[in-house]
Amino acid sequence: MTRTWLITGVSSGFGRQLAEQLLVRGDRVAGTVRRLDVVADLAEHYGDTFRSALLDLTDTARIREVVDSIVAEFGRPEVVVSNAGYGLFGAAEEASDEQVRHQIDTNLLGSIQLIRAVLPHLRAAGGGRILQLSSVGGQTAHPGGSLYHATKWGMEGFVEALATEVAPFGIGVTIVEPGGARTKFGQGGLRFGTPLNAYDGTPAAQVRAFREGVPNSIVFGDPERMAATMIASVDQEPAPLRLVLGTDSWTAITSALESRLADVRPQKDNAATTDHSDAAAHGSDIPWADSH
């Protein structure tokens, strides 16, 4: 079945891998980039089946304009892959205010606004699929990655709620959680705050080693296989809410979930001591309605 895809960030990494595999098999791809020259080879080789569009996710005012333009000129996509993003690393206070804002604007706000822009088109079509690229860092948290984790955890909460909102319209949503992969994420996909001497020798300083590149000794997943699995997930009914890619991701995520349960389970009796005396008779249908 030939499909039309909209993928953000097709210049490198998973976005590029997805675009190449889809174009080879005969699908149509509209891909966003921040520089058109980086995908000139795709445009030349695949002609009318590939369309590139300039888009920087931090320019949220343009996202809907670009999406609408792609739909008008290239056709309505059946599948949307929100892929563009990067990682800002270092201790929380080592990043500048500008770096913090840029990380959130790109990974979180930009991704949210992209999905909001495509939803009217998918609803009009009576369905479709959305794949949101998260990572193992959307379920785990490590020192030196607090700002990156904030954006990935934020997107996972947004998308998990979104999935139930759009299910009545036939729209399936999947959160993709890859572990490490031999992509070019480490070559431009990683940015760092300015090191503070106070963090020398602390756990947060360990990420500084990645300034020089990712060590070859680290075993990573195969980006080609990961992209193929993402593509295959679009044929699954119903859409999987989460797609874990890589043994390292599965191991880290299950460990993190078990650790959180271990923290919470012993608190059952203590949590009940804060219930209102007539909570059973007047409980809200929305459990979090009175939360702050």
Rank of each mutant, 00 (worst) to 15 (best):
T151R: 13
T151G: 14
K152H: 08
W153Y: 05
W153F: 04
G154W: 03
M155Y: 12
E156Q: 15
E156C: 13
E156A: 01
G157R: 03
F158N: 00
F158V: 06
V159H: 10
V159C: 13
E160Q: 07
A161R: 12
A161L: 00
L162P: 03
A163E: 11
T164G: 11
T164W: 10
E165Q: 10
E165Y: 03
A167L: 10
A167P: 06
A167D: 03
A167H: 07
P168M: 09
F169Y: 13
G170K: 11
G170M: 08
V173E: 11
V173C: 11
V173W: 04
I175T: 11
V176N: 10
V176K: 02
E177Q: 14
P178H: 03
G179N: 04
G179L: 05
G180P: 10
G180M: 03
A181N: 01
R182N: 03
R182A: 12
T183Q: 00
T183M: 09
K184Y: 05
K184C: 03
K184V: 03
K184T: 09
F185S: 07
G186T: 04
G186D: 13
Q187N: 12
Q187E: 12
Q187I: 09
Q187W: 00
G188H: 00
G188A: 09
G188K: 09
G189T: 09
R191I: 05
F192G: 05
F192C: 08
G193C: 09
G193S: 11
T194F: 06
P195N: 02
N197A: 15
N197S: 14
N197I: 00
Y199C: 15
Y199F: 15
Y199P: 03
D200R: 14
G201K: 12
T202H: 05
P203F: 09
A204M: 04
Q206F: 02
Q206R: 14
R208H: 11
A209C: 07
A209K: 09
A209E: 06
A209I: 10
R211M: 11
R211G: 13
R211Q: 15
E212D: 14
E212L: 06
G213L: 14
P215S: 01
P215C: 03
P215H: 01
N216F: 02
N216K: 14
N216V: 12
S217W: 08
S217V: 13
I218E: 13
V219D: 13
F220V: 04
G221Q: 07
G221F: 09
P223L: 00
P223Q: 04
P223N: 08
E224W: 11
E224G: 01
E224F: 07
E224S: 12
R225T: 02
R225M: 06
